[in-house]
């Protein structure tokens, strides 16, 4: 087991309504399968609880925790819960993020309220979670932080808040890596491409009044590698690698998991 006895916080371990496996849930399941104790955090406690039950069914260890990660007090409570429960925090995995489902829009249509909401959910949450975890990791002289950004950072994307906040996560991750490397803490960022997840596919089907199959076909066609979207497991496997000791000399890295979409622009 590659994460035996590690303690992980997966923020966004529940998932949006729809079919299949989201990135956060797949990551929580993968970490637990490899021996980590996982605090499954989500604003939707029921969905986080479902993830915990799936982990429990495979003899893994996990607890659900409800938090609105746009509020610092709740992030602080989340970190304190994992720390007091299991005595350390080895892995922080920031998976929350919204675009269309947070009201994101093209420049001329975006409202101030929607923009602020996207910034708070996508960017503020990731920075404040790091703020509260870093003192613990510095005291331990070890830790791995994984931020989930998006391929939207390096390819075309229609909506402004998602693109800008996800790009900011990349710069923040590099700063986090550089400033905390001396403490043995690593920070890396994954850029998922077109994924077949409930948030990406089912949200678009609802928004654009299409069938799931139609949205799947449109997205599959855009992926160079085998003309097929990725799955939550692809992101989970990349996160497992970066969280594990196998990546102990890897920090400050931006890793696309995008089926080659970013190497063939336009």
């Amino acid at each position: 087991m590659r994460l035996k006895d590690r303690v992980a916080i997966v923020v966004g371990a529940g998932q949006s309504p729809g079919e299949g496996m989201g990135n956060g849930r797949a990551t929580a399941l993968t970490f637990a399968r490899e021996g980590a104790k996982v605090l499954c955090v989500d604003h939707n406690l029921k969905s986080a609880q479902e993830t915990v039950e799936m982990i429990g069914a495979n003899q893994g260890t996990a607890m659900a925790f409800k938090a609105d990660v746009t509020k610092e007090a709740e992030i602080k409570a989340m970190v304190a819960d994992a720390h007091s429960r299991w005595g350390r925090i080895d892995i922080l995995h920031n998976n929350v993020g919204v675009s269309l489902s947070g009201g994101d829009a093209e420049l001329l249509e975006i409202t101030e309220e929607a923009f602020d909401r996207c910034v708070a959910i996508n960017l503020k949450s990731c920075i404040l979670a790091a703020k509260h975890v870093i003192p613990i990791m510095r005291a331990q002289k070890s830790g791995a932080i994984i931020n989930i950004s998006s391929m939207a950072v390096i390819t075309t994307y229609p909506y402004v808040a998602y693109k800008a906040t996800k790009a900011a996560m990349v710069s923040f991750t590099e700063q986090l890596a550089y400033q905390n490397a001396a403490y043995g803490i690593r920070a890396n960022v994954i850029l998922p491409g077109l994924m077949n997840t409930p948030m990406a596919v089912d949200t678009r089907a609802r928004t654009f009044k299409k069938t799931r199959a139609e949205v799947e076909a449109e997205r599959d066609a855009k992926v160079p590698l085998g003309k097929k979207m990725g799955t939550g497991w692809d992101v989970a496997n990349a996160a497992l690698f970066l969280a594990s000791d196998e990546a102990s000399f890897i920090t400050g890295v931006t890793l696309p998991v995008d089926g080659g979409a970013s190497v063939r622009r336009g």
């Binding site: 000399f249 920090t251 890793l255 089926g259 970013s262 063939r264």
Partner: peptide, 12 residues
């Protein structure tokens, strides 16, 4: 689902 990438192993 990873292709075309250049993965740094450089200690930051």
């Amino acid at each position: 689902f990873i292709t075309g990438e250049n993965l740094m192993v450089d200690g930051g």
